[in-house]
Amino acid sequence: MTAEGAPASGAPSAGSVSSAGSVSSAGSVSSAGPVASNGRLAGAPPARNWIAERRARSAVLLTLPTWVFLVPMFFLPLGVGIYLSFYDKTLGFPMEPSFVGLDNYRTDVLSPVFGEALVVTLLILALGLALQFPLGMALALLLHQQMRGRGVFRTAILVPMLLTPVAVGLMWRFMYNPELGIINWWLGVLGLPGVDWLGAPWPALFAVTFVDSWQALSLVVLMLTAGLASLPTSPEEAARVDGASGWQVFRHVTLPALMPVILVTLMIRVIDGFKIFDVVFILTRGGPGTATQTVSMLDYNVAFTFLATSRASAIGVVLMLITLPIYFLWRRVSTLAERS
């Protein structure tokens, strides 16, 4: 597939060609797919078939241990969650739960609290993406330049990525402290008024977003620099020779070629952004009020603060349903990424 794409995108008017290139390669894949596999099956000697069968049989055995883990610890709990969502179970309450039908869904999922949590989650997600991607793209392009000390800068930007969210979250909490925190002190130096970062609704939302994005930026820069490094340089050079400006080269050559990587990164961030929990738990526990109560935080609070297992299960089932379509998105994005 790469061999098909490379000469096409080497042509001068890069913008139109690269999009045409991806279309043609997509076409060729879908038409060539069944033919190739038929040809392989029909033309292969019987011994190969026998080996393939044996491989398939041992593959079933080799994946068995994974199923032994997934069935009781992933699928069983999900099933139990669905079951509990129709009952009225209270955490640690030994009484036999009674069937309540859709009551839990009516009281919790259709409540404004859940809607608000969904909005808060999407808001943090959207704000974060708006911060991470333009900034990440710019940094990746800067780090792509030939320069001394590039490795040092890249390393520095990469370091926050895998740090324990709980630990860094608490240190940010220290820095956000309105009286003693270093952030407000700096604002004071700049002549700006201090902000009650975690005590007021909007600042708290930004504070949570900022900590999450601080770590996520590392991932975005990492993915995009790796993507940039894997691009062939000839199309960019050809466009430059043809007199395209730096912005034109980026907009019409680099950006389209980088699109699969961008989409993969975007999907990872959407998944992890929707799951956001640790940082919220540590910084605000969803507060002040419900200003930063994301869906995960809400579900946790209902389950382990209000001890309403069944109501939390109903929320969980809805989150489960929201997660399911991600599978289709995932497949699309990953085939796109593999094709390029």
Partner: peptide
């Protein structure tokens, strides 16, 4: 993919019960 994408709480609430 679902295990990777599912928020942890969804799993942890019924797991606690189990």
């Amino acid at each position: 993919i679902l295990l990777r994408a599912m928020p942890g709480v969804v799993l942890v609430v019924p797991l606690y019960d189990v």
